[in-house]
């Protein structure tokens, strides 16, 4: 079996070696880099999708939070309004009650006044009559005789009338 010289150049061997390297390049490209890169890309896209969905979820949560905060603030305002209206209502009713009470008290006072007036008048009338009777009896005693009661009464009446008028 022979051997090549230690330095020997052979065109065909060079070509074969070149083709070998090209072949290995194609093999590595097709069977190593392509599948691995495909998997890497898939992983990347999956990762991207997950990130996107996480972002979406976050945005949704944010939206919800904002909504709730808004609702909460409006609820506060509503509660305030309700409280205010309740307070106003209470105030109004209280005032109304007070006014009614005042009215009624005024009425009572007026009624009492009129009654008192009536009583006073009644009492004055009573006194007049007493005076008439007393003066009649006095006059009878003074004159010591029976006088025409009718005449006297008229006389005294007019007299008392004058007195009463002067008193008033």
């Amino acid at each position: 079996m022979q051997s090549l010289d230690i330095i020997s150049v052979n065109l065909w061997q060079i070509v074969i070696s070149l083709v070998n390297l090209l072949l290995l390049f194609l093999i590595l490209k097709k069977f190593l880099f392509k599948p691995v890169k495909k998997v890497l890309e898939q992983r990347q896209s999956q990762l991207d999708a997950q990130y996107a969905s996480a972002d979406r979820a976050e945005a949704l949560a944010d939206e919800h939070r904002k909504e709730w905060e808004e609702k909460l603030s409006t609820a506060n305002a509503e509660a305030d309004a309700i409280l205010q209206s309740a307070a106003e209502n209470a105030k109004y009713r209280g005032e109304k009650l007070i006014a009614e009470a005042q009215d009624r008290a005024d009425g009572i006072i007026r009624a009492a006044q009129t009654e008192a007036e009536l009583e006073r008048k009644k009492a004055a009338d009573g006194i007049k009559r007493e005076i008439v009777e007393v003066s009649g009896a006095l006059t009878e005693k003074m004159l010591e005789r029976e006088i025409n009661t009718e005449d006297h009464r008229a006389l005294i009446d007019s007299f008392i009338e004058e007195i009463g008028d002067g008193n008033e």
Binding site: V9, L18, L21
Partner: peptide, 11 residues
């Protein structure tokens, strides 16, 4: 072997 490496170098 020079031929093998020479092929790569030519490429």
């Amino acid at each position: 072997d020079l031929n093998v490496v020479a092929g790569w170098a030519v490429l």
